[in-house]
């Protein structure tokens, strides 16, 4: 275990994790345009054997399969369409990164992945009800919103224990304690990681400001607020929530400005839970595709 160090060192350390979702922004760019370049998409997917396997498996699953089997990625792309394909890629790539074993935050193996998946599903559900962002964008933003915490846990600092001790003793929020103990917030690590990987600026805003959407650039605020709401609803659901989870305050101003209402969020929970339980078993096992 190491004592505290600077933000840049934390970001540098995560470069050694082999399965960073670095091709995701390139796929996002391809999927965002109406006429995705299928050849380039195929090339990117084929770079990653695990992703290519997931794409083929999904294309040949009972849900998508016709009489004819997809034998290659090119056929699978045509069958699934760029949106579904992108969703598989986002889940596979970030999921793999997030289940990398780390210590910190009181997580059990896979906890950050479970929690991020719940935030993604909440964000997708609210995006459809609130019309604040495209559903695929909201889903991806939910998956990647807290990568900085993963990076901090990967760096394996004793400082995480100091934060964990300080928060209940001083009745401070987790963010306040991070700032005092580390000198920076985990959201700044998320921002640096996403910038390094070339994610679009909206996603960088999500990572940086999802805890305080009122401070985000105005153009990004609808998506950032959506993730803020999704994050807290997912926290209440409990899946993968670590020692930090409940030590946050809602940004009431941003939530009200975006039109969120407490009762409506509660009413969406049965639908959200049904979706989550398609991907997470009662014992907590995750099945992304």
């Amino acid at each position: 275990m190491k004592s505290a160090t600077d933000l840049q060192t934390v970001v540098e350390m995560t470069r050694s994790i082999p399965c960073a979702p670095a091709i995701l922004p390139k796929l996002l760019k391809l999927a965002e345009g109406g006429s995705a370049d299928l050849g380039e998409m195929e090339m990117l997917i084929n770079l990653d054997t695990g992703l290519a396997t997931d794409v083929l498996r999904t294309a040949n699953s009972a849900y998508f399969s016709s009489n004819q089997r997809c034998e290659n990625i090119s056929d699978a792309i045509l069958r699934l369409g760029s949106k579904v394909l992108y969703r598989i890629a986002a889940s596979t790539l970030t999921g793999r990164w997030l289940v990398h074993p780390v210590r910190g935050y009181g997580w059990e193996p896979g906890d950050l992945c479970r929690h991020s998946l719940c935030v993604a599903i909440c964000a997708e559900t609210f995006s459809k009800k609130m019309n604040l962002a495209d559903a695929s964008t909201a889903y991806t933003a939910g998956l990647i919103h807290d990568l900085g915490k993963f990076a901090l846990a990967y760096a394996n600092f004793t400082s995480l224990d100091d934060i964990s001790d300080r928060v209940p003793a001083e009745f401070s929020t987790w963010r306040e304690a991070e700032k005092v103990v580390l000198g920076f917030e985990s959201s700044e690590v998320t921002k640096a990681l996403l910038e390094n990987w070339g994610f679009p600026s909206t996603f960088v805003s999500v990572g940086h400001f999802y805890q305080t959407p009122s401070e985000s650039p105005e153009a990004d605020r609808p998506l950032v607020t959506l993730i803020h709401a999704a994050k807290h609803v997912a926290t209440q659901l409990g899946y993968g929530v670590g020692v930090d989870g409940f030590y946050y305050e809602p940004d009431v101003e941003a939530l009200q400005a975006a039109g969120f209402k407490d009762e409506e969020m509660d009413a969406a929970i049965p639908e959200i839970l049904t979706t989550i339980q398609r991907f997470i078993s009662p014992a907590g096992d995750i099945r992304f595709t």
Binding site: H232, Q236, G245, E249, D262
Partner: peptide
């Protein structure tokens, strides 16, 4: 369990 300062939101 409850988040902090939840007078208006997230009161499940």
């Amino acid at each position: 369990a409850q988040l902090m300062a939840t007078d208006n939101f997230f009161r499940i």
